[in-house]
């Protein structure tokens, strides 16, 4: 299997504070890989470092064999990596349609019919809300929009940062099902960052556990789910 994304010894600082301590991580083509960890473990930092903002101080990040460690953010994103950022960050005064167009920035509107249709098949709810302002959507719909927006650029690698944040369990299930469906039908590679360890590990082929900026455990989703230390740290106490 070929690695779509490889991180080797990636280290990131916020000023003097070290957020990532030499992270090694691989995402292979067609896989759903999840990265779980507690608050402040560095999950979102890792996500943003892949996108070049903040930049890794040490180590290297390879996308399809090319070093993207020092590439400007917008060039990284144009290589076929798309991100649905933490907290959704949709454009709240723009309509759903405009939000989706922003996902394929720079491409003519007329050429995006297929991408639009793909998003609507995945999330039929968005089609009903097309001319509605982004900010008036419910949290779940906003998350769908954030994912749909990321898909508009036809990425080869989708980065999802906490899609379950602040959503009802039923909606989380719906969104996770959509991700599974997307991966199964189109073979899209997904890197999923989650706090909801149970759901994420059930969905993912492989998983990594991030603690204090370093990977402490790695394995298949089922394997990680079965480990007692994972159960104790991330699953017991209301999760799932």
């Amino acid at each position: 299997m070929s690695a779509v994304l490889s991180l080797r010894g990636v280290t990131t600082f916020y000023g003097a504070v070290q957020a990532l301590r030499g992270v090694d991580l691989d995402v292979n083509a067609g896989e759903i890989v999840t990265l779980i960890g507690a608050n402040g473990a560095g999950k979102s930092t890792l996500m943003m470092t892949i996108c070049g903002s903040p930049r890794a101080r040490d180590g290297e990040i390879l996308h399809e064999g090319t070093d993207i460690t020092t590439m400007p953010t917008h060039e990284i994103m144009r290589r076929g990596i798309a991100q649905s950022p933490e907290g959704r960050r949709i454009f709240s005064r723009m309509t759903v349609y405009e939000n989706l167009l922003m996902g394929a920035h720079g491409k003519p509107e007329a050429s995006l019919k297929n991408e639009m249709e793909q998003v609507f098949t995945l999330f039929p709810r968005l089609k009903e809300r097309l001319s509605q302002r982004g900010g008036t959507l419910s949290g779940g719909e906003q998350q769908m929009l954030a994912i749909g927006r990321a898909l508009m650029s036809k990425p080869s690698l989708l980065l999802l940062d906490e899609p379950s944040l602040g959503l009802a369990p039923l909606v989380v299930k719906l969104i996770f099902n959509a991700i599974r469906e997307l991966n199964r039908t189109t073979g899209l590679t997904v890197l999923l960052v989650e706090q909801n360890a149970f759901q994420a590990l059930r969905l993912a082929h492989r998983g990594y556990v991030l603690v204090n900026g370093a990977i402490t455990m790695a394995g298949t989703g089922a394997d990680l789910l079965a480990r007692p230390e994972i159960r104790a740290a991330y699953l017991e106490g209301g999760h799932g």
């Binding site: 903002s53 917008h74 991100q83 950022p85 960050r89 709240s92 005064r93 723009m94 922003m102 920035h105």
Partner: peptide, 15 residues
Amino acid sequence: EALREDEIACRALGI
């Protein structure tokens, strides 16, 4: 307009 709404989202979308 997107920049006015959310700069970080713009970066994440490759703008």
